[in-house]
Design a protein around this nucleic acid. Sequence first.
DNA 1: TCTATGATCCCCT
DNA 2: GGGGATCATAGAT
Length: 209
Amino acid sequence: MHLPEGWQQLPDSFYLRNDVVLIARELLGKILVSHFDGELTAGRIVETEAYNGVADKASHAFGSRRTKRTEVMFGNGGTAYVYFCYGMHHLFNVVTNGPDVPHAVLIRAVEPLIGIEEMLLRTGKQKADYTLTKGPGNVAKALGITTKHTAYSLSGDLLFIVDDGFKTEEESIVATPRIGVAYAAEDSLLPYRFYIKNNKYVSGKKVKG
DNA sequence: TCTATGATCCCCT
DNA sequence: GGGGATCATAGAT
């Protein structure tokens, strides 16, 4: 496979660290790439959420709940956790940390870079506006990610994340509570959601101008 | 600009 | 048997 010059696949060591909130923050500005059936699609990550394992009421792994679905989170970091939600959406997460520590980062929005025509086909949209990859359901749909890709290694050449040297300014990063996790009681207030300020692909807020 | 609602199904209890 | 880490649309404001 041929990637653009300067695109460096993230090493396992990036995912194997123990601070999932830091990793969620550092994933801003990186590029999520899928290469299924010869179709290369990629987008720059502009919104993420951290899910902090067994202590986090918003996490599927809260209380060490270990099931067929969540099993991949209990494996090694650097793999994909994809699950099906609301009867129609596939949501893509990055598993982090070592075995038995079920940390994950939900990718909530990307800015399309490569394969926009293919993204339009997959989503059935007519034109590439800001809704193409806004929100976690749309990200997975545009990149062709489904539950069959859960447990895929991000060290492979089908689904992975690269660094192209893009620098995300500290002052352009915003931290807020996570979206759609009101059921998590006090944990729903934690500032575990990160996004790039003023980016039109970020979900959960209106776009002006 | 907002709120309400329907679509739709896998996974867990 | 019930609810969910959502999205697009319709209709009210």
